[in-house]
Design a binder for these strands. Structure first.
Lengths: 195, 195
DNA sequence: TGCGTTACGATACAATATGTACCACACACA
DNA sequence: TGTGTGTGGTACATATTGTATCGTAACGCA
């Protein structure tokens, strides 16, 4: 007979990963250790080793936890500028206000040597690209785009620039900046109705 | 009286940092330790600790070494597309073929907690931005730019996208991609002579 | 060439991080 | 109420990171 899963398993895992996430944000990936989590949660070191026998596994679990979040349903009602502002605004919010914004650089660095981190990063990017692309697709269906609009390049640009500003250059992503960013993209995508 | 500097000082420092750079590329920042460099160079562990008493100092020195390189003199003879292709081509080459391409992600991650890494990264970006900007300035002087061309945004875009593709998304920077990238920027910057 | 200085190499040692092994206890389910 | 399973505590093994000390070798200078 199958036994029901012991609720303690999930409870300790959740507690531990919560603490790991905090450590990740506050002190970086190197601070995520069995000992540190034990000190912070009261969970014994042996229990933590039982759940994640290796340090890599523990850190990957923490990364994974940081990347999880509610999926954004893209708005595609139009017009393009409104949809894009909302969609890229969600990205900006994720970078500004969720753990992911602080942790992404460490995932990027880890991706150089660790496949799981690479997969995690790629999945995150693919999701965002998909969202932005669907906005363009809808705009195209409404006839809002100019003939040869380079949609693929525009999608990449829409995402790459906020990423670069925030993570690489350490520049803020303000509402004013967002407006200018979206405006530039729209001016490239739509029929040149500009003055 | 001042004594001349002992040549052994420079010799060991150079040897050690060469090995550190190799380790950095091949096995990541975590592999850069006094012990590893000692094993690789034959320099004794105690000597390495004498030069860089802390591990952070050693890694920062390795980062610094990775970032050094000959300064690119921007070409500003025009036309814009030629100058931009050359200038961004230099950036692409640096990312593709120098240690910096492999190490930048680790510097970015370290920048979250370490001021020296932050400074290093900012200096690198500022240099590149300055180069690209001077290309636009020259083009403006020649009257190649359209009235309200958003030069600042274009400069950022020129740099952010290759960075994102290579470091974050792990995508290749091919000559074909470079051409498309530059073309897009030019079409935004120049008087809309496009059909 | 010889002398004082300085860098280097070797070793021993301390402190911490990273696991492993084992046992007693407490909690969950039947 | 028993039986299994997760947990906590401790002891222990090993590697990493850093310190301290000593003799030796290379260097600059006279």
């Amino acid at each position: 007979m199958e036994r029901l899963p012991d609720p303690r398993l999930d409870a300790t895992r959740t507690q531990a990963l919560d603490a790991a996430l905090t450590l990740l944000q506050e002190e970086g990936a190197l601070a995520v250790t069995h000992a540190a989590i034990s000190a912070r949660t009261g969970i014994s070191r042996s229990t933590l080793y039982r759940h994640w026998p290796k340090l890599d596994a523990l850190r990957n679990a923490a990364f994974g936890r940081a990347a999880t979040g509610p999926k954004d349903e893209p708005r595609t009602d139009g017009p393009l500028k409104i949809d894009l502002t909302w969609m890229i605004g969600r990205l900006v919010m994720a970078l500004n206000e969720t753990p992911w914004g602080k942790i992404a650089p460490q995932v990027i660095a880890a991706a150089a040597t660790d496949k799981q981190s690479r997969d995690l990063m790629n999945r995150w990017i693919a999701d965002r690209k998909g969202d932005v692309e669907s906005v363009f697709t809808a705009a195209h269906a409404r006839g809002e785009l100019s003939e040869g609009a380079p949609v693929e390049q525009l999608v990449e640009m829409a995402i790459a620039i906020p990423y670069f500003r925030k993570l690489v250059a350490g520049l803020p992503l303000t509402p004013e900046w967002l407006d200018a960013h979206v405006s530039m993209i729209c001016s490239m995508a739509t029929k040149t109705t500009s003055k």
